[in-house]
């Protein structure tokens, strides 16, 4: 494909499915204080559609964590921190989702998280593909069922098949950033592997969305 088809997920980050940048390194350890339920634990739900929706709701803990939502804003301005306050300094995505002319995201956000050794903000987050989600992938202000529908809609998910979404969630380095967000930043719940497994199970069970 020539037209880049981006899927915006965790962090500010959009990644092509065929991207060579995804990392094969072991998943980050995650936050033990906020585990994700295992796929198996949903086995007691007899109805498949119901089970599917419940699994997505669990995955939603990640999707709706500040680590993901901050860069899926409804405006073209990212938010920051667990309180999801407006990005300081004021920043806009601009057309290419990489910041305005002359001030790319990479001005501050390097290829990796950067420790500051400051007494306040302990690190500046970074990733080689740091950018803002395109507007059609905005999540802020949406309910989880709305996000779920959006995720299934190729017009609003970067022209992805569900299989591509599973791969993306499981393996993408930028998605993985949510569990390695740098010092001073809370992690997304669970692990990327656990999250990926939930998404995979959700798709296998028919990708049903929770009811509003």
């Amino acid at each position: 494909m020539t037209k880049p088809s981006h899927l915006a997920l965790c962090a500010a980050v959009l990644v092509t499915a065929a991207s060579a940048t995804w990392s094969a390194t072991a998943p980050a350890p995650g936050d033990p204080a906020r585990p994700l339920r295992s796929v198996a634990s949903f086995g007691t739900i007899r109805d498949q559609a119901e089970r599917s929706a419940a699994i997505f709701a669990e995955a939603g803990k990640v999707i709706q964590s500040p680590r993901c939502l901050n860069c899926h804003p409804a405006t073209r301005t990212p938010t920051q921190g667990d309180a999801m306050r407006p990005h300081v300094p004021f920043m806009v995505s601009s057309d290419g989702n990489h910041g305005p002319k002359g001030l790319p995201c990479a001005t501050c956000h390097g290829a990796d998280n950067s420790r500051t050794f400051a007494a306040g903000i302990a690190s500046v987050p970074g990733n080689a593909h740091w950018q803002l989600a395109p507007i059609e992938m905005a999540w802020q202000g949406l309910t989880l069922p709305q996000i779920c529908e959006q995720l299934k809609d190729p017009k609003r998910n970067g022209s992805r098949s569900l299989a591509q979404i599973v791969t993306h969630m499981n393996t993408d380095h930028l998605v993985g950033w949510a569990w390695e967000p740098g010092e001073g930043r809370s992690k997304a719940p669970g692990t990327q592997a656990g999250f990926g497994a939930l998404i995979e199970a959700w798709v296998k069970t028919g990708a049903h969305c929770p009811r509003a």
């Binding site: 990479a106 501050c108 950067s114 420790r115 500051t116 400051a118």
Partner: peptide, 24 residues
């Protein structure tokens, strides 16, 4: 500021602006 909030430390790296206080 030491944390990329003020821009005083801006340099160019390969022609692009960088806040040198958060660039190892």
């Amino acid at each position: 500021c030491g944390v990329a909030l003020c821009g005083a430390c801006t340099v160019h790296v390969d022609g692009l602006p960088r806040r040198s206080c958060v660039t190892p």
